[in-house]
């Protein structure tokens, strides 16, 4: 039996003024699979997430989720359909505790009530290692905890697809290892994961498939080691200051 397609981008284009963010981009993702996304800054990686999660409307083309068009479906409804996302710069609800941050996600995106919502929150907080900070106001969290909270909140919505936007950036090596463990466990439960990350090492230990975006187009798609070996991919990274701010940290 073939694995069903979960996410489909069908010839999606997007430009901001003269800047092309997505140029006739097509992509399919199977349910339960993992996909890493790399590419230089400005390649359109975060905008790609925006078009899937509903924060950004595509200029043309169509995004489909579980066989259903997402045209004119707003971000909240997409979340309720099963698309959970994190933001590159964490966006915690600073005046609410970690518990409340996650609870609102379980109640709204996860459409859970009372004890079911509480149980979901407790599971997610223990999985992401935030249980001890449950009563801490999110505004008092440090960077690692904020990144974990992004993941916890997205998980609390009960996603079929988890979009991770640079959740490993700025973390120390042991912290990255721990995060990778959390994400692999989530994927093992059947949640498809798309992960944008500059820390390629973290990606390689997690994803089965890697795409490289540049100039709004997919310039490499396949097994991670094959994609990283492609001449056009190597040229982008080696040609643009190696592993500088725009390049992968190998």
């Amino acid at each position: 039996m073939p694995v069903p397609i979960l996410l489909e981008l069908d010839r999606v284009s997007k430009r901001f003024g003269q800047v092309v963010i997505a140029d006739d981009l097509s992509l399919t993702l199977e349910a339960g699979s993992t996909l890493g996304v790399v590419g230089p800054n400005g390649a359109g990686k975060s905008t790609l997430f925006g078009m899937v999660s509903g924060d950004v409307a595509p200029g043309s083309g169509e995004v489909r989720f579980a066989g259903r068009s997402l045209h004119r479906v707003d971000a909240a409804a997409r979340c309720r359909l099963g698309i959970g996302r994190t933001y590159q710069v964490p966006r915690p609800f600073v005046g609410m505790t970690v518990f409340e941050n996650t609870l609102v996600a379980a109640q709204q995106g996860g459409r859970l009530h009372r004890q079911a919502a509480t149980d979901r929150v407790l599971d997610v907080l223990s999985e992401t290692g935030l249980l001890a900070s449950a009563n801490t106001p999110a505004g008092r969290l440090g960077l690692l905890a904020r990144k974990r909270l992004e993941v916890a909140r997205a998980l609390a919505t009960g996603p079929k697809l988890l979009l991770l936007d640079e959740v490993a950036g700025g973390l120390t090596e042991p912290e990255v290892v721990e995060l990778v463990g959390i994400i692999r466990a989530v994927n093992a439960r059947g949640v498809a994961v798309v992960w944008i990350e500059h820390v390629v090492r973290a990606l390689l230990s997690t994803v089965d498939r890697l795409i490289c975006l540049a100039g709004g187009a997919v310039i490499g798609d396949g097994r991670p080691e094959d994609v990283l070996a492609l001449p056009q991919v190597r040229q982008i990274y080696l040609g643009s200051a190696g592993s500088g701010p725009g390049g992968p940290e190998l």
């Binding site: 999660s53 509903g54 924060d55 707003d74 971000a75 909240a76 409804a77 979340c79 309720r80 959970g84 996302r85 933001y87 966006r91 915690p92 609800f93 600073v94 005046g95 609410m96 409340e100 941050n101 609870l103 609102v104 996600a105 109640q107 709204q108 995106g109 996860g110 459409r111 909140r153 997205a154 609390a156 919505t157």
Partner: peptide, 24 residues
């Protein structure tokens, strides 16, 4: 109430509130 918690999330970050399913 539930709506109140959702409103508090909107107060703190409207974009993130939408992304966790709050019908803003």
């Amino acid at each position: 109430s539930r709506t109140g918690l959702a409103l508090t999330a909107v107060r703190d970050n409207e974009l993130a509130a939408r992304s966790v399913g709050v019908r803003v």
